[in-house]
């Protein structure tokens, strides 16, 4: 499974970013290989309008199975992500990446 997180940094100990479109980073954890890949989303988060769809597009290309975030994508981004098979879990906005992963594994996060 590949699991994507919206984050403030690129490590387990870093904080989650509760925002979707304007999240600082997208971090993808590959469970099989135990590796991270990341995308620096700060250029997108600096656009005046349309951050949601752009971030969704980026995520689409990274093609994870699961997305873990805080508030959940806004309307535009949600519409874009519906095109994928990705499952979206929310409510992890004030955790660290590790806490978010563990909460997800323990079935404690709600599906959007």
């Amino acid at each position: 499974m590949n699991i994507a997180f919206t984050t403030k940094g690129t490590d387990w100990k870093d904080a989650m970013d509760p925002r979707f479109g304007r999240a600082d980073y997208i971090l993808v954890y590959n469970e099989t290989e135990d590796t991270f890949s990341s995308f620096d989303n700060r250029a997108i988060s600096g656009t005046a309008h349309g951050a949601g769809p752009q971030t969704a597009q980026q995520l689409f290309e990274m093609n994870p199975d699961v997305l873990i975030t805080g508030n959940g994508p806004g309307g535009n981004a949600a519409a874009a992500l519906q095109r994928s098979q990705m499952k979206i879990f929310i409510g992890a906005g004030s955790m660290t990446v590790r806490e978010a992963y563990e909460a997800y594994k323990a079935g404690k996060l709600n599906q959007a």
Binding site: D17, P18, H49, G93
Partner: peptide
């Protein structure tokens, strides 16, 4: 619109 979406994003 967009500004209020951005205002709400990340709120507790």
């Amino acid at each position: 619109g967009c500004p209020v979406v951005s205002s709400l994003s990340g709120a507790d």
